[in-house]
């Protein structure tokens, strides 16, 4: 049943694709940089007292007028761009991974249950999924964000901004997980080993998670990788539109929104550096997702 490649085959495939290796390196560096931001970043961009407007609008250190304290320059508030990007990426990744976990748990849970229970429940879940597919992800996210803004008192909004974003993005990504999990549950339900487990009186939850779920892990990992890139992009889009994170706790999208003001003014680093980082991160994750798909899907080889 398993369609995985052997380890050596996978390594062989990897060795033939320098692009994938490069992508893995980029993603690894970006993720490590984001994860270790508090240790390696020159300053803390969330600590308002740690930077000063006096240093505002400095170009990167290697250009004329640059300052060695600010390798990639500063923004209009005097915030070090290196630190802002690393912390921004950290926030983007936290939200991306959180949204992914939200989508995976919701989607896999619903998919397994729908496939197992069948009947009306299955029909209901799948119709909801169809409706969800018809809605663009950005619209779902805006809707959730809008409802949360409406329901919450103005003082409470800031504390729940990240959970709201996670839920908003997660809700727009669960369908792929649910469909994949349901399809494999439907297929596996009639397999002998599952029938045997049923006959032995094993608890359905145990059958679902121990017998069926492992079979579908491969495709789910591929979906998760690609969706991580989507989640990061979606967060960036929401923050760019100004419904995401505020300017004093900037994610990559917020940094790009701030940088937009300097699109025509000559201070290119404020816009282009976070944008380049975001693009590199998302492309790298997508390339890895494609590679994983190749490994897990023998037909693509």
């Amino acid at each position: 049943m398993r369609a995985f490649l052997s380890q050596s085959e996978a390594l062989h495939l990897l060795a033939r694709s320098p692009l994938v290796i490069a992508a893995a390196l980029v993603a690894l560096l970006a993720i490590a940089g984001a994860a270790l931001a508090p240790l390696i970043a020159p300053s803390d961009p969330y600590d308002l007292a740690s930077f000063s407007l006096v240093d505002g609008l400095r170009p990167p250190a290697f250009l004329e007028g640059g300052d060695t304290r600010f390798l990639l320059g500063t923004d209009d508030q005097g915030r070090d761009m290196v630190s802002a990007i690393l912390y921004g990426a950290r926030l983007s990744l936290v939200i991306g991974l959180g949204a992914l976990a939200f989508a995976a748990i919701l989607g896999i849970g619903l998919g397994l249950a729908a496939g197992w229970i069948g009947g009306r429940f299955d029909a209901l879940v799948m119709r909801i999924a169809d409706v969800q597919l018809a809605l663009p992800a950005i619209l779902t996210a805006l809707l959730v964000d809008g409802i949360a803004r409406g329901l919450l008192p103005s003082g409470a909004r800031d504390e729940v901004r990240i959970p709201v974003l996670v839920a908003a993005i997660g809700l727009s990504l669960w369908v792929d997980f649910a469909r994949t999990a349901r399809a494999s549950t439907l297929r596996a339900k009639n397999e002998d080993y599952v029938q045997a487990a049923i006959a032995m009186g094993v608890h359905p939850a145990r059958i679902l998670f121990v017998e069926i779920l492992p079979n579908v892990l491969g495709p789910l990992v591929v979906i998760a990788t690609v969706d991580l890139a989507s989640a990061i992009l979606l967060e960036a889009t929401l923050s760019f539109l100004g419904v995401g994170l505020p300017a004093d706790a900037p994610s990559l999208g917020t940094l790009i929104r701030i940088g937009m003001q300097f699109l025509l003014s000559g201070e290119w680093w404020i816009l282009w550096l976070p944008t380049a980082f975001l693009v590199a991160l998302v492309v790298a994750i997508n390339v890895m997702g494609d590679f994983l798909r190749e490994i897990f899907d023998p037909r693509l080889r």
Binding site: L48, L53, D76, Q77, D158, P246, D248
Partner: peptide, 20 residues
């Protein structure tokens, strides 16, 4: 907005935390 963010940052430097 940029002015307010700068004001918040300047106030932070003397120890007052402005939630913007």
């Amino acid at each position: 907005e940029a002015v307010c963010r700068a004001v918040a940052s300047m106030l932070a430097r003397v120890g007052i935390d402005a939630e913007l």
